[in-house]
Design a protein around this nucleic acid. Structure first.
Lengths: 328, 328
DNA sequence: GGTCTTGACGAAATCGATTTCTTAGACTTC
DNA sequence: GAAGTCTAAGAAATCGATTTCGTCAAGACC
């Protein structure tokens, strides 16, 4: 790796001039040419580390998500990446596993790496965003919120819960249960509220099951529901993967998803494979990502307007007509 | 952010001593205590950028994958991450979209960011690994290989292709077509060879379709196959997502996956949702990741043994018994 | 013609750690 | 007790860019 000094020596100018050329500052035509020629001959690339040390900031944004194997989050990541690329920023993806410890570690890395900003889906209310915020680096919460005063992009979760439940009730199901994520996460709580609001009167004992957000959690919860004295005849899951687990459990129990109502808040991954009878509330995952990235980039650019929370509306997918395009 | 100088001043020692304490070098008990107390009081975290500039290396490894929305690669990423974490390394995930341009950009970033090493699934044979290799940074190719002399972890792709095709032939299908990925990618070519070897005699005109690796590609290819004069009665796809697209096309054409044989090299994502009749060759994605990470970390640690290529064997999944665990 | 601007550009300081010298003292060893 | 190790720890150089501060020359203005 050639350095700015070698380029300067070859071009017969000072290192300062080389730097100026690469940063678009005023330099005469003549010297610009000399510098560019020398740089090309040496295959010079500016050392980002040195630049970062000096400038105290970089063109990297950190994206902290709970589960990289959940298509909802990869779609979100896609959105963030697309938007970041446009502005010449790179995205570092970090998988927190919903573990506050891991999350904190990544936040510290983001701080000590001088990253330009952070987009995260907080694992818990207790995340200490102080390490980042006190450095003056912008943070945007996405999908989930936090008590810290930061910008946020979220989904109208209660409406999504209502929509999912309503679709089942309208289809004639009577005893609608709910498989929710871990208690204490606002997004899932709100969806549960939506469910309760619609299914309220019909809710039996034990109809609300808490599970982790993954396939195995949905499976376990569904199994528990089926073992009840008066089992439900339909279920709403508050995320996509738990619906997969629930379907799995139904199939294993020999129950067809046609007779047992299933609704998911979130799209089943790779829909083509899902039973057509499953109700899905489509979440604008990619949009969530682009919106969050846009807000973050605005802050990075120095935008100082008051804190914003953008709420995106989810959309119920029609039951009958399978979509033509890709599954996400 | 407190610096090493402030800590030194507060502790009444020199900055060098503070550095030594944090790097586990010889320092008296007494001063160690002083330094740690001061550091704690100031909430000091060493500035990674400064350290990296000085040491000319970091504890970050770059992982370049073609498609972050493909569960095969996220599982692989998971493997890399798990292994890296154990050794205190962080992983930066980069999505190349199979675009050599993007790939090169990320490689340059890896170089100018002093990343410790790179694991990649090359988008094409023409990737210029020179930028990384010439810096003496280790590189491991994963899933796909490259003409550059680097360590590699791959799958026995021909065997996988053979296994998938054989399962269909054994099940009684006669006219087995193949939906392959883009020409020129070794992994998919090898799988095609496997298919040809088994299905050879029975291959009709146009039975080999090339597509992109995604759902829409599989869909288009399947549609083309069905439009042939003598359409096949079964198909092998050389990756997971194209199988999803193929199934989609079959459903749309009103053909049940029970009557039309489908085999995929790779696991269908979220299997619980897939028709039980689909043959799947399970690829050890996560293993691929941990193995690659292990090799890379060994090289980073200075291991200088000759280049290695590790070949992992895929495994045909039993048709009938659905797995109990999570889909990946 | 003399003072004032203005602009290009070099010298040197700076960012915050690591690391190489150096030095001073403690400890062996004969 | 003199000469020869060690060891802890400070001073200062170093990594490679950016940026402040000056300098110098060319052009503007009265």
């Amino acid at each position: 790796m050639a350095t700015i000094y070698e380029v300067a020596a070859l071009a017969g100018v000072s290192p300062a001039t080389v730097s100026r050329v690469f940063n678009g500052l005023a330099v005469s035509e003549e010297k610009q040419r000399l510098v560019r020629d020398a740089a090309a001959r040496l295959a010079f690339t500016p050392n980002k580390t040195a630049r970062r040390l000096r400038k105290q900031s970089s063109e990297i944004i950190a994206l902290l998500i709970p589960d990289i194997e959940n298509p909802f989050y990869t779609a979100l990541a896609r959105g963030v990446e697309d938007r970041a690329q446009e502005s010449g920023f790179s995205v570092v993806l970090c998988n927190t596993d919903d573990d506050p410890g891991k999350e904190l570690r990544y936040l510290q890395i983001a701080a000590s790496e001088q990253m330009a900003g952070v987009i995260l889906s907080p694992a818990s209310d207790e995340v200490d965003l102080g390490v980042i915020v006190s450095l003056g680096r912008p943070v945007v919460a996405v999908d989930r919120t936090t008590p810290y005063p930061v910008d946020a992009v979220k989904i109208d979760n209660r409406a999504a819960g209502i929509a999912a439940t309503k679709a089942l009730v309208d289809a004639g199901y009577r005893r609608v249960a709910c498989i929710a994520g871990p208690a204490g996460i606002e997004a899932t709580e709100d969806r549960v509220h939506g469910w309760r609001q619609v299914a309220g009167a019909r809710v039996g004992e034990g109809y609300l099951q808490h599970a982790n957000f993954r396939v195995d959690g949905g499976h376990a919860a569904m199994t528990a529901l089926l073992a009840l004295d008066t089992p439900p005849d339909a279920v709403v899951t508050t995320n996509n993967l738990m619906a997969v687990g629930a379907l799995q459990a139904l199939v294993e129990a020999g129950i067809s998803p046609e007779t047992f109502g299933v609704a998911a808040v979130g799209e089943l991954p790779f829909m083509a494979l899902a039973p057509a009878s499953v109700v899905q509330v489509r979440l604008p995952a990619r949009h969530l990502g682009t919106t969050a990235a846009t807000m973050l980039l605005e802050r990075i650019a120095g935008d100082a307007q008051p804190l914003r929370t953008v709420v995106l509306r989810a959309e119920v997918m029609p039951l009958t007509s399978p979509r033509k395009e890709s599954a996400l």
